[in-house]
Design a protein around this nucleic acid. Structure first.
Lengths: 205, 205
DNA sequence: ACCGCATGTGGACGGCGTCAACATTAGTGA
DNA sequence: TCACTAATGTTGACGCCGTCCACATGCGGT
């Protein structure tokens, strides 16, 4: 048996191949026929496992989201113990943001793919917890608990933070800022995170 | 002569048709053959005026940028005179941000198209001035002049502001926040702009 | 041993961007 | 005035894509 007629677990093989395409060329690089080619299977074989291309892309997006979460969590875990609770909480929020942006810039294609499927599907409860959003929420809750973020300013805080890092990533990824040097980019990110920290924090400092 | 062999000014007709497509269906809706069909000309006719599809899209993006600028400028112009200079400057920055987001949400397709061409072209000096970036820069300069924004925090401020409103727009346009109700969205935007204002402003308030 | 159903194949269709060869016309210089 | 050239538009083809259909294959239960 050179290659058996039935692949065994085509589905996950397709997802893996698609993931690689997405990593290298973004969501548009996930071409059904190319995915099939890479797995060594005929075009159309994928239709036994996915209704259409979008459904495959959705699965890939899900994996991408998970990887993003992991990258962010890793940064949190690597954080040294801070002296006081307030500094620690503030630092954690910064790290959440930095993890988001770093992943976006490092895994350009996968990041784009992860956000390419919200037009059709509306996130069918994909992130029960531990998603990027949950990490951000936890960080902000900490900030409240510790007394740095006033409860009156708590609602809308996640959207503000998310928007800031998401926009920063996209402007540098596919936007007009894609040409700025990494050093300048780093400085700008520091400035952005500092601005958010100041904007959320108590007036007293 | 029913329809003359030579169109007269095909180029601008193509751009107009493409603009309409972009408005209705975003950058992916700008299909060369469909554009030609709408103008009543054969496919391929466009190749006498544009090297390829991307070149047409680039022109469309440029127009979109201009419209964005105009929408923002209009909001600034409509602003009532404020009592003191500081309030006025702060208010202007808010309005710049609100104009950006409002346009993005109102002209979804065109906004997306305007930002869809930075991968190939690197903005060949398209915005000499009066672009969205210039409006933001002017607003921030005012903030410095008026004494609200410290010069030490001035560098990077435009990137921070831009990232915030850009991210906010995209999260609601093609991202996970596309399902939030307009009222909540409005509240979140107010919160975001307030956070940026606090983050940039002097500690004293 | 058999059969049904899941899984994979091959071919076709229409739509796309693009290229090359050809047709038509507008302007220009003699 | 008139022919020629360059600009502009057309036709047809190619290879790619996603998707649908009919058909082939073989695994698992009876």
């Amino acid at each position: 048996m050179t290659t058996p007629y039935h692949h065994g677990n085509l589905r996950s093989a397709l997802v893996d191949a698609g993931l690689e395409l997405a990593r290298a060329k973004g969501p548009d690089g996930v071409v059904l026929r190319e995915v099939a080619r890479r797995v060594g299977v005929s075009h159309n074989a994928a239709y036994r496992h996915f209704a259409d291309r979008d459904e495959l892309l959705l699965e890939i997006a899900d994996r991408g989201m998970t990887e993003l979460s992991r990258a962010m969590q890793a940064r949190l875990d690597a954080l040294p113990d801070e002296l006081d609770a307030v500094s620690r909480a503030r630092r954690r929020l910064q790290e959440v943001g930095r993890g988001y942006v770093d992943f976006a810039l490092a895994e350009e294609g996968l990041f784009a793919a992860a956000f390419s499927c919200f037009a059709e599907k509306v996130a069918d409860g994909s992130d029960p917890e531990s998603g990027p959003y949950e990490l951000l929420t936890a960080a902000l809750d900490d900030l409240v608990e510790v007394g740095y973020l006033d409860t009156s300013r708590r609602p809308g805080a996640e959207v503000a933070c998310w928007a800031a890092v998401h926009g920063f990533s996209l402007l540098h990824l596919e936007g007009p800022l894609r040409v700025v040097a990494p050093a300048d980019r780093e400085a700008a990110l520091t400035g952005l995170l500092d601005t958010m920290d100041r904007g959320l924090g108590r007036p007293v400092r």
